[in-house]
C-alpha cells in the first residue's frame, strides 16, 4: 500500500521529479556522452587497424575518382550557390531553429533527452533534425529545462515518405533504430541505396528531410505492395547537437 501511495504521489509530480533528476544529472550526462563517443571512436579505430592497409589502397583509388568528381561538383556548387541566393534557401532561412545538445537516451525505447525545454519555447510535436537536414524525430514531451525526443524509429510511429522520382510510401518505426517502409507500389522499381525523404502528404513532417536509404527491398507475390528496410541516416552515437524546428519561415 505504501509503495502504491508513493507511486501515485510521484506520478502526480512526475514532470517536476523527472525535471529535477535531469537537471542534476545534466553535467554528468554530458561528460559521459562525450566520453562514450570519444572512447567508442578510439576503440573502433583499434579494432579496425588490420584492415587499414587494404582500406588505404582502396582510398587511394577513390581519391582519383573523387578529384574528377570534385571538379564537376565545383561547377555544380557555383550553380547551386547562385540558385540558393536567388531562391533564399538554406536551413536557417527555411526554418526557425533552436539548437539543443543531446544528453542521454531513454533506457528501453527510442527516445533522446535534449537540454532544452519549455523554458526555451519548445513544446510537444516540434520536429527535430540534425544539421545535415536529416530527420531525427519529434519532441514528445517538454519539461521545463529538458525535452524527450521520440525518434523516427519509435515503435508504432508512422509517417509519409517519398523515394526518389515520386514513389510514395508509409514509414513505420520498428523500435531499436529499425525502420520499415510499407505501401510502396509494386510496379515501381526500388533499388538498394535509393534515398528516402519525408513527404508533405500527411503534413506530419516538412517535405524534403532526409530519412535514410533503402537497405533491402521485400517484394512478395502474395502481397499487393512491396516493403523496404531502411538504413536510417541519423547516427545517434555520432551526433551531439540537434536542431528543433520551431516554425517555418515564409
Amino acid at each position: 500500500m505504501l509503495i502504491i501511495f508513493f507511486i501515485l504521489i510521484f506520478n502526480v509530480f512526475s514532470f517536476e521529479v523527472k525535471n529535477f533528476f535531469y537537471l542534476v544529472s545534466e553535467p554528468i550526462q554530458k561528460k559521459l556522452w562525450s566520453a562514450g563517443a570519444t572512447l567508442s571512436n578510439f576503440s573502433s579505430s583499434i579494432f579496425n587497424s588490420q584492415n587499414l592497409k587494404k582500406e588505404n589502397e582502396e582510398l587511394k583509388k577513390n581519391i582519383q575518382a573523387l578529384i574528377v568528381e570534385n571538379e564537376f561538383l565545383k561547377e555544380l556548387k557555383k550553380e547551386n550557390d547562385f540558385l540558393r541566393n536567388a531562391l533564399n534557401l538554406g536551413l536557417e532561412k527555411e526554418f526557425n531553429l533552436e539548437v539543443a545538445e543531446i544528453i542521454g537516451k531513454d533506457i528501453a525505447q527510442d527516445y533522446l533527452i535534449i537540454d532544452k525545454g519549455s523554458a526555451d519555447g519548445l513544446k510537444g510535436g516540434l520536429v527535430v533534425i540534425s544539421q545535415e537536414k536529416v530527420l531525427v524525430g519529434r519532441i514528445e514531451k517538454s519539461y521545463e529545462n529538458f525535452s524527450k525526443v521520440q525518434l523516427l524509429t519509435f515503435k508504432n510511429s508512422s509517417f509519409d515518405i517519398e523515394i526518389s522520382e515520386g514513389i510514395f510510401g508509409l514509414a513505420k518505426g520498428n523500435g531499436n533504430f529499425n525502420l520499415l517502409i510499407d505501401l510502396l507500389p509494386k510496379e515501381k522499381e526500388i533499388k538498394t541505396g535509393d534515398k528516402i525523404f519525408t513527404s508533405a502528404l500527411a503534413g506530419s513532417f516538412p517535405k524534403g528531410l532526409l530519412v535514410g536509404e533503402v537497405q533491402k527491398v521485400q517484394k512478395l507475390d502474395i502481397e499487393s505492395f512491396q516493403k523496404a528496410e531502411v538504413k536510417i541516416a541519423f547516427d545517434v552515437g555520432a551526433t551531439n547537437f540537434v536542431f528543433i524546428i520551431k516554425g517555418l519561415k515564409k
Binding site: 554528468i28 550526462q29 559521459l32 544528453i103 542521454g104 537516451k105 533506457i107
Partner: peptide, 14 residues
C-alpha cells in the same frame, strides 16, 4: 542509470 543512458549506448546497439 547514467552510464546506461549516456555512455554504453555508444558501444553496443543492444
Amino acid at each position: 542509470a547514467l552510464l546506461q543512458t549516456s555512455f554504453f549506448l555508444h558501444f553496443l546497439k543492444y
